[in-house]
Amino acid sequence: MSSKNLDTLYRQVIMDHYKNPRNKGVLEDDSLTINMNNPTCGDRIQLTLKLEDGKVADAKFEGEGCSISMSSASMMTQAIKGKNIEEALKLSKVFSDMMLGKEYDEDDLDLGDIEALQGVSQFPARIKCATLAWKAMEKGVSTEKEEQE
């Protein structure tokens, strides 16, 4: 088995997030709900965000999908919690660049577990799995941002 290749995709930390997802569930009360799906493969995510004073106070997700899409959602919620909206969007940009195999500017952002998803960029067919949750987050915080402006 050409497992060397596969091991760059299926890193231990990804599998850990897949099996033990963080922030799984639905936020109640005044939270923002974003539903998104990947029409070509059937993956779907429901993201609930609690935004307070320009910050992501809390985030949870529910959904169905492959190891990459679900672990990415788990890592994303973990990463954006406590960040302000600007930082969350910046993180999303870094993630998108990472998926495209571009150089990305970490600045002083703490990428944490997210870096484990770097290998996905070598599997073009799976990039859209990894970006689903991030797109949902972007959509959520952008509508909120527009309302504020």
């Binding site: 088995m1 050409s2 596969l6 299926y10 493969c41 059937g42 190891s67 990459i68 799976r126 799995c129």
Partner: peptide
Amino acid sequence: HDVATVLDAEGIAVRAGH
């Protein structure tokens, strides 16, 4: 999807999805 990715690494093309 994971099945299809692992099989693809083996040169085997199958469909995954709905």
